[in-house]
Design a protein around this nucleic acid. Structure first.
Lengths: 339, 339
DNA sequence: TGATATTGGTATAACGTTTAACCATCCGTC
DNA sequence: GACGGATGGTTAAACGTTATACCAATATCA
């Protein structure tokens, strides 16, 4: 047992050729029941596990897929990952997660290493400002790729995303119905991807309703940022009473910040999140948010990837999932306007 | 450019043998400057990237390492992962994360697939009740493995962890100094790993100080659980005024729960967390916690793995990092005891 | 009975690298 | 002008699988 057993060892132990052993272990070819049992027994006895590098080199099939996210810490991603791996693991795939931290250099390094290993497929949230070269690279190496959330400029990959514009449009109308007139968009920094679509949705509703211009306030999508930026936003734009956030994290942070300032979320200022992360429901106050069911989104993503892997010639697909408003306690009627 | 370029294509384009091309691209062997430039240029022109499967099969070296965690969503893990990959990526490694969700079956599947791909190394938080077989499997295939947080029963792997017992012992003493006599341990379910060590630390201090027995209250390490369990704990043990938690998440949840119950964390009940996750400092109230600097812990973990990879014969090492108390506002003097 | 399937299995060439061993030159040196 | 040593490169055999093509039996059928 000193050396790692290889197929040849199993074959020898079972008294057959490596070809036969391989066929048995893969369940292909015509093999008699008796030798089948022999081989299986030998493999078990020797604790044999196939070397998937060799296998995939020869067969061209690789059941490892990668999921490159922007920020592993984000609970939204965590829930998506659950959905992805639940589906793919039942199909015998191994899902591993790469963290690009929304940094193009890191992303590039990761993806290059990824390509080297010729894995079976890639689920990818492209970092901001990803250059065309990188898209090119993936395309050139023919790795089945599905972009997630952020759509590639060239649109040559399958895509799974969210109906962002429609979502924020309805969120804006909802706030307007509550009497809010001065509305802000808080969070995110990217001039790219989901954020621009969401801002577009807000602007559309605002234009149609004839409200004052949307205030756009940049900051990272983290709780801390929401916490500190809310007071600066408040200071710069005291009239704003309705805020739509780029994500639940920044929304929750903003609520905490308001409480520290002596303001009451849902009363003095209404806050709408985005994602409906698990924490949203138990935050103080429970967060009104655009729910996209990250887990289901993950399953959809996995499904698209599987389809692509199975039929590489299939025309590119784009799947946009709706987001629906879940009202909780962080929103409420607008306070009387101070002039 | 139709076909994926291989080393042979590069060699041909540069007018040399594959051996030479390989040597150039790896920087080994004696090669004249002129042909070196030729080969490099050809490789660039063809957009060549080495197939690391073939390379690692032949050379036995694999610069991909895996990090198997219990729960990818946990921000503690996320910070550890940052530390790990920051260090390893500068050494040219690709870090990918596997999520076992503390489920032995899922873990087993993941690890088997992992072994198949003969990666360079594994950082591993073993799931609860991991059987000896699984440890055996990894050992047998000779994959350089470092266990993290939870130590293998047999202790045959390198290990990086936390001085749990000492940490909770000092946390307990701290609470006692504030006048708390009835102390509880909240969170976790495992009869295994960090939790038992931490409980042991609490008990040690309690015994030495002659306080009433420690109340141990099980629940998952999540915010939600803290939120709901705190009221049940309170009901079952009304005298408890000091709580030490198994993690910051459950601690933060418990604080929220107390606020909902009309209790004031740090005044009616004092809460100590564990980990010092980024959220701890901005929670309401800011959380007193045992800080272990997850990022640095990650770097340490990576360092140990590198050492092991570089010298497989090195004797097994165990590194325990201290945790130190960071006092914030979730703890305070004990309220007068009601009899 | 001779022709033809069918069954169960094997030999061998890939897959794309790396590396050990080997081979020409050419250069200086005694 | 034969010899030792650099210098710069090549040949060919691995690494551990899988797939294609082939072969020897035995079974089937007119």
């Amino acid at each position: 047992m000193e050396h790692k057993p290889k197929l040849a060892d199993v074959a020898q132990a079972a008294g057959v050729s490596t070809a036969t052993a391989s066929q048995v272990l893969r369940g292909t070819g015509r093999i008699s029941e008796s030798t089948r049992k022999n081989v299986v027994a030998a493999a078990k006895r020797l604790n044999y596990v196939r070397d998937s590098r060799a296998a995939s080199m020869r067969s061209g099939e690789n059941r490892e897929i990668g999921f490159a996210v922007l920020q592993i810490a984000n609970p939204f991603n965590a829930e998506v990952i659950s959905g992805v791996s639940d589906l793919l693991e039942t199909e015998g795939y191994l899902v591993s997660v790469l963290d690009s931290r929304d940094d193009t250099d890191r992303q590039r390094r990761n993806l290059e290493a990824f390509i080297r290993s010729s894995r079976g497929g890639l689920l990818w949230v492209p970092a901001e400002n990803t250059d065309d070269d990188t898209f090119e690279l993936l395309k050139a190496h023919g790795i089945p790729t599905v972009s997630f959330l952020r759509r590639s400029g060239k649109g040559r990959f399958d895509h799974v995303g969210i109906e962002n514009s429609a979502a924020t449009e309805s969120a804006t109308r909802y706030l307007a119905d509550l009497g809010h007139r001065h509305i802000a968009y808080l969070g995110g920094t990217a001039e790219f991807g989901v954020r621009v679509e969401r801002i577009e949705g807000c602007r559309k509703a605002i234009a149609e309703l004839g409200l004052p211009d949307l205030v756009v306030w940049n900051c990272p999508d983290e709780k801390v940022s929401g916490l500190v930026e809310i007071s600066r936003l408040r200071e710069a734009h005291p009239k704003v009473t309705g805020i739509i956030c780029n994500g639940d994290m920044v929304a929750i942070g903003a609520c905490s910040g308001m409480i520290r300032m002596g303001l009451q979320p849902g009363k003095d200022i209404s806050v709408v999140g985005f994602d409906d992360v698990q924490d949203a429901a138990i935050a103080t106050p429970p967060l009104t948010t655009m729910s996209v069911s990250p887990y289901q989104l993950g399953r959809k993503l996995a499904r698209v990837a599987l389809d692509r892997i199975r039929d590489p010639e299939m025309p590119t697909t784009i799947s946009l999932m709706p987001a629906e408003l879940v009202t909780r306690e962080s929103t409420g009627p607008a306070p009387p306007e101070v002039e």
